[in-house]
Design a protein around this nucleic acid. Structure first.
Lengths: 143, 143
DNA sequence: TAGTTTTCTGAAAGTCATTTTCATTATCTC
DNA sequence: GAGATAATGAAAATGACTTTCAGAAAACTA
């Protein structure tokens, strides 16, 4: 089931309504770069529909996170970011503290160890955050 | 060199001043549970000195982080938390999403893999965040 | 150690991302 | 299509910091 279908299902099951704004936000969200902040997505959407409200964009992003088609990320710059979820793969992030670049990495060994840690502490792990902060190769080269 | 000495050194080298408030905040911070938010520490300190200001507490916690005797953590509840650093050990956190309990875990294998990932992407890692969210054993038992 | 300089403090005001409110508008159900 | 209910957008509110500023306290200086 693709993410549009997941969202539509969620909306139906919760008795919510399917509006043109939500469809437009979903489409734009899925068809562009990941790691949108509300502000960034809002500015982008305003070009298509100058009447759209910031609150609507933010409420809708929260809704995406709620129904599982997006995750909320926070890289310490004081703004939440939202990333579209692809259930076939999981990744975490390298964040350059100089230029802000975000690199995704996959590391199944860490996932395995995490599960082991959950068992060790009798802790039911539901989600995690793993981010490595530092200087990317481009910024290192600049000196 | 203990953390009080590190702080005093930092203050001296930076041409800052050593005030009774800073000493009181440092002492309270080091001698109690870790993972203080500014608010929590502020409320605790007010019992000893009702005149102390929130801004002073927050500025001082930032100063602790700056000189390396504390790290700023963020568990997604919209409040920064500060933890006293012990250079002999490194740990990450399990955070219970029901009761807020924070459990510390150490996992050298993950540290090793992180370094490997840094090399893989030619990325100079300076710090990281690794948090596992879920339900602790007590909350699981409650059903 | 008194005087001078500079940093600190605390109260209050300011920021800024996010959240809520509320009157109006749009969907959905029948 | 009418009624019920949720959604939207503008504006106000919230809450966690952050800054400002005048008076207080520390550190330097002669």
């Amino acid at each position: 089931m693709d993410r549009v279908a997941v969202f539509n299902d969620y909306v139906r099951k919760k008795g919510l309504k399917n509006t043109s704004q939500r469809m437009m936000i979903l489409e734009t969200f899925l068809n562009s770069k990941s790691h949108y902040s509300t502000e960034e997505l809002y500015l982008k959407l305003r070009k298509k529909n100058p009447k759209i409200g910031y609150a609507t964009v933010h409420r809708t992003l929260k809704l995406f996170a709620e129904c599982g088609i997006a995750v909320e990320l926070n890289f310490g710059d004081g703004q939440a970011r939202f990333e579209a979820v692809n259930h076939e793969e999981h990744h975490d992030h390298l964040v350059c503290t100089r230029c802000g670049e975000i690199i995704e990495f996959e590391e199944p060994r860490i996932e395995t160890i995490q599960e082991e840690i959950g068992r060790r502490y009798d802790f039911k792990i539901e989600s995690h955050r793993h981010e490595l902060y530092g200087v990317c190769s481009k910024c290192s080269a600049k000196g």
